[in-house]
Design a protein around this nucleic acid. Structure first.
Length: 286
DNA sequence: GCCCAGGGAATCG
DNA sequence: CGATTCCATGGG
């Protein structure tokens, strides 16, 4: 009985709760969330800080402004229904990151990286947008990746309140690489078009990607020209929320080789993607 | 001018 | 197979 009450209280304490105040949704009891770490860690490219220091992002056909302090998130100009059905899921607020960090205790370096970066949450992004964004990311730097994506949206997305949505695969599938010249994506233009065509005609089996083992899922995405291991794994992690995917960029390869002696920590099994994000931030801030 | 940027395809040996 | 080279573009 005591155990049940204890568990209930623990649950109450850690569970985020939302209320509406005027047109804003206030979410209390938010732990392990830091907007700078989450939006600026290279997983998403359509979030920016405004003059007030608030974070503004465009997701699907919605623009949202968000503020965080003292374990409280404020979402401006929205409502509880939209929060419950969309933002809660997108921000991954239901997931208990602290229990994952507990597992990482077995490895001192991974644990340290996790503690320093525990404000990172893996956003549940649209799979097409993630695929397209990480194709653009190859051999590129983050400011320019953001620029190309912004021009892609302005030129081919839908006009929405406050900006432009990310263009659908169907829209881009009708274009040629030359049509993309204004976005200045360089050699990646033909990759984007190929991805759009294969994605929109269901030549890529998204159900398989969600359910199959990680190697099969990765191979499915690598049917697309310009999608190698790294882009595929980023798409799996950020676009399909496969937190068992482990994108190996130059930085992570360095960590695996120099710190872990060639093998990724056993305690990260099943949560490789989360570990990867902690380590990526950690090594770059060293 | 030169270098590199969260890679990948093509082309070697 | 592993190693090298080219790929567009822009910021430092």
């Amino acid at each position: 009985m005591i155990l049940i009450i204890k568990r209930y209280l623990t649950r109450m304490k850690s569970k985020a709760s939302a209320v509406l105040l005027d047109n804003d949704v206030i979410i209390n009891n938010v732990y392990d969330f830091d907007p700078a770490q989450t939006f600026d860690c290279g997983q998403a490219f359509r979030w920016n800080q405004n003059q007030n220091g608030n974070w503004v992002g465009i997701v699907k056909d919605k623009m949202i402004e968000l503020c965080y302090s003292d374990n409280t998130i404020t979402l401006y100009n929205t409502n509880l229904q939209e929060y419950q059905s969309f933002w809660k899921e997108y921000l991954d607020l239901e997931f208990d990151y602290s229990s994952v960090i507990e597992k990482f205790k077995e490895d001192p370096v991974l644990y340290k990286a996790a503690i320093e970066n525990r404000g990172i949450r893996i956003l549940k992004q649209d799979s097409w947008e993630a695929l397209c964004s990480f194709i653009i990311s190859q051999n590129n730097n983050i400011p320019r990746i953001k620029g190309i994506i912004e021009r892609l949206c302005i030129n081919f997305g839908e006009r929405i309140k406050g900006g432009y949505s990310f263009p659908t695969a169907d829209t881009l599938a009708k274009l040629t690489p030359d049509d993309l010249l204004p976005i200045r994506a360089g050699f990646r233009a033909r990759y984007i078009i190929d991805a759009a065509q294969k994605f929109s005609t269901n030549m890529i089996d998204t159900h398989l990607i969600k359910t199959a083992d990680i190697d099969t899922a990765r191979a499915e995405l690598m049917k697309i020209i310009g999608v190698g291991e790294k882009v595929a794994d980023c798409t799996l992690l950020f676009g399909f929320h496969r937190i068992d995917a482990l994108p190996k960029d130059v930085w992570i390869k360095r960590v695996i080789k120099d710190i872990f002696n060639g093998t990724f920590p056993e305690c990260a099994k099943g949560y490789e993607g989360i570990a990867q994000q902690y380590l990526f931030n950690y090594i770059r801030n060293l």
